[in-house]
């Protein structure tokens, strides 16, 4: 454990000494040097502990939670999301599925569970972030293959495409403003083309990710919320239809790619 901390500190110091390059190469170098030493390992451990921890009025663990491959099956479950669940009769992303399990299996209050899904800067990270990080790691190396067999799953993709190109707000921004062209960057930050297979696979396959600049693991739900903040839109809600639709759009465009999360990001 100590080794990780020490290695991370060394690399953080090294990163600060690197002159600003006019591309994303410095972060690629950082990632290479880190190798398997992603600080997200601590969050993965925490997520696993939380999965097996009895919680709520029912004092139940999440082992009875069905992530689509049967109750308690976690290996390879994340790469099939977003997907339709007959018990809830809706398409869910991993975050909304976890909320469903916390309320139905553990008997926890929906408003309490939903109150603070994503940590603020300086926080230690939330239960949701830890669980998602562990479950993504349980799919590491697996092929991205979201379900698109149910009509509701296909409708969710169509909705996601509509929202992706929907321009609104004082700046007229849509997701497409930044993410429909290849090899572009905003300031120094490289922008994935999420309409392409390669861009979507790189992006979808690398979240959740440890954000070096924030010292936290962030989920794709958080990533979307922060994109909309920068789009000057109101705040996107975790587990909302727009969040699930956009994740479906990305995951389906990414299908066939490899899940490499948890990633390591600027």
């Amino acid at each position: 454990m100590k080794r990780h901390h020490f290695g991370f500190t060394l690399f953080a110091v090294w990163l600060c000494s690197v002159p600003l390059a006019a591309d994303d190469g410095v972060f690629d170098q950082y990632r290479d040097l880190m190798g398997d030493d992603n600080p997200a390992v601590f969050v993965i451990d925490e997520g696993e502990e939380l999965w097996f921890a009895p919680q709520g009025p029912e004092s139940a663990t999440l082992e009875a939670c069905d992530l689509g491959l049967g109750p308690g099956v976690t290996a390879g479950a994340y790469v099939r999301f977003p997907r339709y669940f007959a018990d809830a009769d809706v398409v869910m992303d991993l975050e909304s599925r976890l909320v469903y399990c916390m309320t139905t299996i553990q008997g926890r209050d929906l408003d309490v569970v939903n109150a603070k899904p994503y940590s603020l800067r300086g926080d230690f990270g939330t239960e949701m972030e830890a669980l998602v990080t562990w479950l993504a790691a349980e799919s590491e190396g697996a092929t991205i293959a979201p379900e698109q067999t149910h009509a509701a799953e296909r409708a969710m993709y169509t909705l996601g495409e509509e929202i992706f190109f929907y321009r609104a707000g004082p700046h007229d921004f849509s997701c497409a403003t930044c993410h429909e062209q290849s090899d572009m960057r905003i300031r120094l930050q490289a922008l994935p083309d999420l309409t392409s297979h390669s861009g979507a696979a790189e992006a979808w396959g690398s979240w959740p990710a440890y954000r070096i600049s924030q010292g936290l693991v962030r989920t794709m739900g958080w990533r979307l919320r922060d994109c909309f903040r920068q789009q000057r839109w109101p705040e996107l809600q975790m587990g909302s239809e727009v969040s699930i639709a956009l994740q479906t759009y990305m995951a389906v465009n990414a299908a066939g790619g490899t899940m490499t999360a948890p990633g390591l990001k600027r």
Binding site: I163, W233, P234, S240
Partner: peptide, 16 residues
């Protein structure tokens, strides 16, 4: 769908 997925926050109001 948009109205059900977003909430107003500070100056970022729903009419946007």
């Amino acid at each position: 769908v948009l109205r059900n997925s977003f909430v107003a926050k500070n100056q970022a109001t729903m009419d946007r």
